[in-house]
């Protein structure tokens, strides 16, 4: 559950902007009972926030620290854990299967992220108008968002089934050769990306749609008056206005993409020939099938590191080029 939030950042900056602390001057004037009242007030505050906060912190900060400890151990969950220092990370550096997983995840990210950002942009532009049936179109495009990974996975194994699947059926009908899809090591990842796109295009579309409606109409009208055609007006006027949203959706979809797991589990289980083995799939397999909790935790920390680097990198790049997305 990683996340980068604009609201969150806003909250943190406002959190940091506390008024200069008023130090009570030696407090002789304090009446008896004031301290007690203060304690009661603190207690009252914590009574409101403690249940949710303890659950959230107890299920995140504490396990995250524990994962760091685990990553320096060799442990199968039953016998005594053995401290191995940095050996898990050293082993990871030369683990071919892990690097293959990194490459596969990279391929998926390269397929999915640009496709989902562009799809979101185009769909948002198409849906951002007042024409008949627009509500129907929006519903059709948004509704796959509620489909679970399990359902999507099972559905894709049928849709892309080489023999009975609808996709190959259509290909045959229009005279193209049928493909192996999920059973072909060069195509499996493409199919997963397509189905992921089906389920999540709604997200980028909604984000762009909201952003498009914030573009001042006057800008567009001015551009049209200056003789720009619609194409020019879009790319020269609207697109630059959307830059922060583009940075945001790119980071967000990238984080989602490098955490790909569910769809792999419900379609190919990492196959064929490990071609869809992703980082998280490898992590899951190492930790919960092979029971290498220490090694799995090391993979998890590397994943976290990659996420942080990408996020910080894109944000810094965005800042430097004058676009602030967060």
């Amino acid at each position: 559950m990683s996340a980068v939030t604009a609201g969150a950042r806003r909250a943190s900056t406002s959190g940091g902007r506390t008024p200069p602390r008023r130090i009570p001057p030696s407090r002789p004037a304090q009446r008896p009972g004031a301290r007690l009242r203060r304690w009661k007030n603190d207690l009252g505050g914590w009574a409101f926030v403690a249940p949710a906060s303890l659950l959230v912190l107890g299920l995140s900060i504490f396990p995250a620290g524990w994962a760091l400890l685990l990553s320096t151990q060799k442990w199968d969950g039953f016998s005594e854990p053995v401290a191995v220092g940095g050996k898990n990370f050293a082993k990871l550096a030369t683990d071919d299967k892990f690097w293959d997983a990194v490459v596969h995840t990279g391929i998926y990210t390269a397929l999915f992220v640009p496709a989902s950002v562009l799809a979101g942009l185009f769909l948002a532009v198409a849906l951002n108008r007042r024409i008949r049936f627009i509500g129907v179109y929006r519903t059709a495009i948004f509704v796959p968002f509620v489909a679970s990974a399990a359902a999507t996975g099972i559905l894709s194994t049928y849709l892309f089934n080489p023999e009975f699947g609808l996709v190959n059926n259509v290909l045959r009908t229009i005279g193209l050769p049928a493909q192996g899809w999920l059973e072909d090591r060069n195509q499996a990842m493409v199919v997963i990306a397509i189905m992921a796109l089906w389920g999540s295009a709604a997200f980028t579309t909604v984000i762009y749609l909201a952003a498009l409606q914030d573009v001042p109409m006057e800008l567009l009208e001015a551009a049209r008056l200056d003789g720009a055609n619609r194409w020019q007006a879009f790319w020269r006027v609207v697109w630059p206005q959307l830059a922060p949203v583009t940075v945001f959706t790119t980071i967000w979809q990238t984080i989602q993409a490098i955490q790909l797991f569910d769809l792999v589990l419900t379609t190919t289980k990492g196959g064929p020939l490990d071609s869809t083995q992703t980082i998280v799939y490898y992590l899951w397999h190492e930790a919960f099938v092979e029971l290498n909790f220490g090694y799995g935790s090391a993979v998890a920390w590397v994943l976290f590191g990659i996420t942080l680097i990408i996020t910080v990198g894109v944000v810094l790049y965005g800042r430097r080029s004058g676009q602030e997305a967060f």
Partner: peptide, 14 residues
């Protein structure tokens, strides 16, 4: 706020 950045995958094992 700090916990928002932590991916689930890091928390699964512990």
């Amino acid at each position: 706020l700090g916990t928002i950045m932590i991916p689930t995958q890091l928390l699964m094992i512990p």
